[in-house]
Design a protein around this nucleic acid. Structure first.
Lengths: 158, 158
DNA sequence: CGCCATTACGGAAGACGTAAGGATA
DNA sequence: TATCCTTACGTCTTCCGTAATGGCG
């Protein structure tokens, strides 16, 4: 029960994509309808769900042969937990997106005004009022290192 | 901010594996040490991190050429959020594991006593007192279907 | 020169879609 | 017969590990 000090938790065997397909099928009550909703072929969804059932060693759906699928009780329990988990995933992505926007703005400032470091602290202060991230990026590197922060520019250095 | 009714959140572009490697590198402070810890080659971790930086459009680490890597501020922020997210993932897996244990016990009962359905309701009642899952599985299928619940036995039906 | 991250590359595994099979109402 | 899930299969992208390259102490 207590895994707090365990650096390696149990290896995660499932995939975000599998979980996404599972939730889509659970919401649609049918694999074919889920495939229409998320624009993925039925076999892909079926395979993902089967994989998930295999890795979890439990049956998620009851197949009604010409009438779609319904969640088992265990499946329904995991369905709720999985929806929450996928929400967490989107939240994480939103978090990254926000950081991206902010940091890019700041990096560009560093690049376009390397000769006027006097104005940087003030800009940092403005951004710092919203997000502290900006401050530390400027603290971390001088102007040369800020240029090095370009993501796709390994050949820009002449 | 409010995405409640949005059936399609923003598509999740990252992978649990990438996140795991990212956290391993962040905790180790070096890609090579992370590779030793999680038993994955350095290029794999490096590639995963690069991919993550590309999809997020932000720099996660500052590379110190012969001295490992350190998280940028944005990277540190995402590092914390990612650790929490991976904890959530392990929690989900534990959840599934618990459900699996309970249901398997019940399925085996159904398989080993197909000729004595009289005792099944009593056993179900016992299990039902602990978890309602058992009840529904038994209600859902007759004995033949219970045999069909074997995970890896599609050819067992003679 | 030693250390560490990255790139190159050949092989393996996984995911996808089309097409065919099976089973029920 | 119609519907829906599953299996089969060919293709393609992605991932991994070994080996080679680059860049600072």
């Amino acid at each position: 029960m207590l895994l707090l000090k365990n650096g390696f938790g149990v290896a995660v065997r499932f995939t975000l994509k599998q979980l996404k397909y599972f939730v889509a099928a659970g919401e649609a009550g049918s694999i074919i309808r889920a495939s229409e909703n998320i624009h993925v072929s039925q076999p892909s969804i079926s395979s993902a769900i089967s994989h998930l059932e295999e890795t979890f060693d439990l049956q998620l759906f009851v197949r009604h042969h010409a009438q779609g699928v319904t969640l088992t009780t265990a499946g329904a329990s995991l369905f709720q937990a999985t929806k929450s988990f996928l929400n967490h995933a989107e939240q994480l992505q939103s978090h990254a997106g926000e950081l991206s926007d902010k940091i890019f703005g700041t990096i560009q400032v560093g690049c376009f005004m390397p000769l006027a470091p006097i104005v940087v602290p003030e800009l940092c202060h403005q951004f710092m009022q919203q997000y502290r991230d900006v401050q530390v990026l400027v603290r971390e590197g001088n102007q040369a290192e800020l240029l090095g922060l370009h993501r796709h520019g390994p050949h820009i250095q002449p």
